Amino acid sequence: MKKFDRTETKNRKILDLEKIGFDDFYIAGFQKIKSVEDSKEMQTHTDMIEILYIDKGLQYYKLGQKELMLNGGDILIIPPEKRHGTNNHPEDTANLFWIAFKIPKNRNRLLNLPLIETKHLINTFLNLPSCHFKGNAKIATTFSKIFEYYDLNEKVNSKIHLTSLFLQLLLIVIDASHKNKMDNSPSQEISNIANYIKNNPRKELSISYLSDLINLSESRFKHRFKKEIGIPPGEFIMRNKINYAKENFSNYDSIQDLAFALEFSSSNYFASVFKKYTGSTPTEYCKDTLS
């Protein structure tokens, strides 16, 4: 088992819950990833359940043998002994919350609940209909309150508030798992637009042009596209261009030629967008793929 990373930075906050007296809730964290970072190595945790909530952004994740794309508002439940990580995908721009709690052994109790309630909660988490599902606004609010009430100088008061918040969080997550089952099938018209974008990476595609194709207002089109595909249409277009670039560097005489072919205004702008979504500049990427 790999231990949880407790490193804190300006954009990464860790709550060591054992320090304020919790034996069952182990660690909580929040991270604001502003630019693409190195991939997160695959790992497992023994006798522990982790809740990962994507507040904003996008992450590619592997859980066991499943490859998942997690969008803003998604929850991922990581069961004990299940290998997980970004699986060579760089960590994408996102706001992430996570918390891990131990599965009580023998007759130990979770959050001091009676044994029957403890067993019910643990069994419910171990037998959820899906490990990946949509959350709701209450989850982000509850996570935020957990960070608000964590206070090493007021351990007793802090623990009382956090005990209540942890139980609320578990119940909200369970409720969301039954109400918000993932439906990964976009409507036919949005699917057609997504395919059109994929098939035309070298075109300059405006939101107004795409929305006109299916007779929607721009605001309605952007709302539906993000809801059904998972990311805004502008970002989908850019990611598609970068995917095309990664596969076609060798077909162009220079990076500048490829940038202009993809309708970027300059090679510098292309390089900045490429690095945003891959973590490397085009030059670095070409060197790595050729080495």
Rank of each mutant, 00 (worst) to 15 (best):
D5N: 14
D5Q: 03
T9Y: 01
N11M: 07
R12L: 08
I14F: 03
L15M: 06
D24Q: 08
Q31N: 12
K34N: 15
S39N: 08
T44L: 08
E50S: 07
L58H: 15
Y61L: 14
Q65Y: 12
D74C: 03
P79R: 03
P80Q: 00
T86D: 05
D92V: 04
T93D: 09
N95G: 09
N106Q: 15
R109Q: 11
R109L: 11
L110P: 02
P114L: 08
L115C: 03
F125L: 02
L126P: 12
L126G: 10
N127M: 07
P129T: 06
G135M: 04
G135V: 04
N136F: 11
F143D: 02
F143K: 05
S144W: 00
K155S: 10
V156F: 15
I160Q: 08
F166M: 00
Q168R: 08
Q168A: 07
D175F: 11
K179V: 00
S185H: 10
P186A: 05
Q188K: 14
E189W: 10
I190R: 02
Y196A: 00
I197E: 04
K198C: 01
E204K: 15
L205K: 00
S206I: 00
Y209V: 07
I214D: 04
L216S: 00
S217N: 03
E218M: 04
K226C: 02
K227C: 04
I229D: 01
M238D: 10
R239F: 11
R239Q: 13
K246M: 05
N251L: 12
Y252H: 15
Y252R: 11
D253F: 14
D257C: 09
F260E: 13
F264H: 01
N268A: 10
V273K: 12
V273P: 06
S280L: 12
S280Q: 13
S280M: 15
E284C: 05
Y285H: 10
C286F: 03
T289R: 08
T289V: 07
